[in-house]
Simulated assay, not measured.
Amino acid sequence: MMKKVYIIISAYNEEENIHVLYSSLQNELSAIKFTDYELVFVNDGSKDKTLDFLLELQKTDDKITIINQSKNFGHELAMTAGLNYVGNTNTMSDFSIIFMDADMQHPPKLAAEMITQWLNGKKLILTKRIENQDTGMKYRLMGNFYYWILNVLSDVRIPRNMPDFRLLDKKYVLWMNGLNETDRMFRGMLSLIGLRDAYILEFEAPKRNAGRSKYNFLNLYKLAIDSVIQFSIKPLRIATFMGFLGCFLSFLFLCTSIYISHIRHEPKTGFLTLLSVSTFFSSLTILFLGIIGEYIGRIHIEVKNRPLYFNEIIKNED
């Protein structure tokens, strides 16, 4: 049976990296003897010349397919577009896909190693980043806090320092395409399926070839909220527990007030205590309403059943 590898590359404002990445991939892939491959570039609504450069490359290489998103839908949906394209166009042959970014922090040499391991029988190949030359202490602390919150509150454990740079065999592609939720986080979705058969390759992420990272604190915050709510109802359970705890503490406070005022006959106004307790529980109420609102909001989006993205598939017709 014919084997084929689809390399799905998400790109957002990466005009300075496209040619470097393409040349590097060509060098690495030419050294591997396998049947066929296709470079699937997902242009995620870039505002620079990323699409123009991709169209130039496509004129000289019919192995390039461009998925041009109508706007910037985000990294997760860019990968979803590539995943859906492969799943919809290739269901008969033996194939795999590789997810990678266009900023050269996912080394093309490692992509070639993934393909070699796949040809040797590995079905799920993950990467583990042991060092990132492009991040400082601030980013690492944010990352540590993000994964701590995620794994404390989520029912699905998501390994740390394992980026979306990975290879999935055909069966994993079909399983992933069967997950229809709107809020998507590929690392969590794959953990939901199971990582028991995963083969792990370690690597050091070099500095970006050009440009700067698109992630900041707000992006990580939104990703953390989406990740927790997508894979867990623990926040709702915590809210319920805190509600019971609040009722219990209120009862104790009432009993203490009765004892001080009517048994010990101590004159106490209790104004500041009442104010602080009232403020505390009012804040908890607002917090828990916010948590419930997050879940209801996602239900609202899901039931609309809107398309996750809009794009056009551009192929070399020559």
Rank of each mutant, 00 (worst) to 15 (best):
G178E: 10
Y215Q: 10
Q230M: 12
K214S: 07
T256R: 07
M162C: 14
K214E: 07
P267L: 08
N219A: 10
S278P: 00
S257K: 11
P159V: 02
D169K: 02
V277S: 13
N209Q: 12
L275Y: 08
T269P: 01
G270V: 00
I229Q: 02
F253I: 05
L167W: 04
T256V: 09
P235V: 04
Y199G: 02
L192R: 06
K207R: 13
T269E: 14
H265S: 09
G211V: 00
R212G: 03
S276N: 08
L220C: 04
F165A: 08
P267N: 06
L245N: 11
G178F: 09
S232C: 05
I158R: 06
K222F: 11
G243P: 00
I258T: 05
E202S: 12
S257Y: 13
A205Q: 11
F281C: 07
W175V: 06
V228D: 00
I263V: 14
A224I: 05
T182N: 08
R237E: 14
L275Q: 07
L220R: 04
N216V: 00
R264S: 06
S213T: 11
P206C: 04
S257W: 14
V277D: 02
K222T: 12
L167M: 13
L167C: 07
D164F: 10
R208N: 10
S276I: 14
S282F: 13
L218D: 11
F251D: 08
K222E: 14
K268D: 06
F271R: 09
L272C: 01
A239T: 07
T273Y: 10
L223Q: 13
A224R: 00
L252E: 11
P206I: 03
N177E: 13
S282R: 05
F231Y: 15
L274F: 15
P163D: 04
S282I: 11
F244Y: 14
E181I: 02
L192E: 13
C247D: 13
R160L: 11
